[in-house]
Every structure is written in structure tokens, then in C-alpha cells.
Amino acid sequence: MDLLAALLRQAGDSLRDLAPVVLVIAFFQLVVIRQPLPDSMALFDLAIGLLLVVLGLTLFIQGLQLGLFPVGENLAREFARKGSVGWLMLFAFALGFGTTVAEPALIAIAGKAASIMADAGQIADLDGAQARFAWELRLVVAASVGSAVMLGVLRILKGWPLHLMIIGGYLIVLLLTLQAPDAIVGIAYDAGGVTTSTITVPLVTALGVGLATAIQGRNPMLDGFGLIAFASVMPIIFVLLFGIISGGVGG
């Protein structure tokens, strides 16, 4: 019964996320646009789709809270206390990498990016080529978040100032933007925003707060949160590099 109550609460949260979107779109449809929906779209299908979105997100988050979060948080605390820097680094990278691969918003955007690239003839318009591009993009972003978490952990250990590192990251983005093919720039900048949502934030924050609590003289509030900030700059750098190296994209 506890599970049912938790599911209902979670469904409420998901609905609250979706409600403004639906209300605003409904308002614009009924008051501003006042045109019938195109034939290709049935209101019924949309309703089913929205239902799936709410249901899916609810089950997904509830499942995370039951399964992955307790184990992941426990591991994060365990590694933070153990104090072996090598293992800690490896775990930090693996955690950032693994959570990002499963991030729903990234799956959505990588798929979109692949189909847009194929439409524009930047990559072959075959299902296989599209799937490969989407998968490569996700691996690059995942590796970038892994490195970001690793760097963030190193920062907490050494006590480096967050803002100087962020500014450094911005400067690297600036330099790489000048070099990167134009077609990848938009995707790269957007990649910074999609990595930090459902799975990554709770697990990575647990690692940061656990570390900052375990080390003397660190403030969990100040040091625990900075990890996420890196996770939104590093993907930009990695995807720009990916564009420069794979070269053929745009130019």
C-alpha cells in the first residue's frame, strides 16, 4: 500500500510538470489559433500519448527511488568515506557516465539531432546511420558528464574555487566554438542542458554531499552542489570536440 501511495504522489508531481504545458497549448489552440487539428493528428492519440508520458515518468521515477537511488547513494557514501582517491575517481566517472546514458531527455534530443542531421544530408539517411549517430552522441555526452563528475570530485578534494573553473570552462567553449563546424554548435550547446535532469542530479548530488560531509572543513552546501554545474559545461566542450574530430559534419 505504501508503494501505491508513493506512486500516486509521484503521478501528482508528473502531472504538475505536464499540466502547464497542456494548459498553455490548449489556451493557444482554443483562443489564439482557432483552427482544427491537422488530419494526421487525432486528439485521441495525443491524449493517449500524454497519458503514457505521465504514466511512464511516474513508474520511472518511482522505480529509481526504489531501486537505483538507495544503492547508488549508499555506494557514493561508501566511496566518499573509504578515501581511496583512485577508486573514488573511477566511481565518479562511471556514475556520471552510466546515469547520463539512461537520461530520457538526452535519448529524446539525440534521436532528434540524428534525424535532423539525416534530413540535411550530413549523415546517411538510413536508420542504421541515424541510430549510430544518436548513440555516438550519447556516448560522447555521457563521457563528458563522467569527466565532469570526476573533475568536480577532484575540486571538492582539493578545495579549488568553483567560479574560476566555470570561467575556465566557458573560455574553452569559446575557443572551441571558433573551430567547430557550424552544424554541431547548436546541438553541443543544447547538450549542456539535457544532461542534468532525472537520474543524474540525485545520484551525483548524493556523491557530492557525501564527500563534502566526509571531508573536514568542507561545507556540503557550497561544495556538494558544484558537481552539477560542471555537468552542464563539460558536454558542450566534448560535443564541440566530437564535431571537430569527426570533421565531416557541416563545415
Binding site: 504545458v21 497549448i25 493528428m41 492519440d45 495525443l46 491524449a47 493517449i48 500519448g49 500524454l50 497519458l51 503514457l52 508520458v53 505521465v54 504514466l55 511512464g56 515518468l57 511516474t58 513508474l59 520511472f60 521515477i61 518511482q62 522505480g63 529509481l64 527511488q65 526504489l66 531501486g67 537505483l68 538507495p70 544503492v71 539512461a102 530520457p104 535519448i107 529524446a108 532528434k112
Partner: peptide, 27 residues
Amino acid sequence: QVLSGLALVLVGLALFLVGLETALFPM
């Protein structure tokens, strides 16, 4: 409990991705 949580994660993510294609993107 962890394994049943993982099962929920799997089903939930799949349903979300289908809903994404049928509703959120088209809207």
C-alpha cells in the same frame, strides 16, 4: 525491492519514450 524498482524503471522509461513520440514532440 531493488530488482522490482529496476523493472519499474525499464517499463516507465519505455512508456515515456513512446508517449514522447506520439504526444510531446508532435505538439
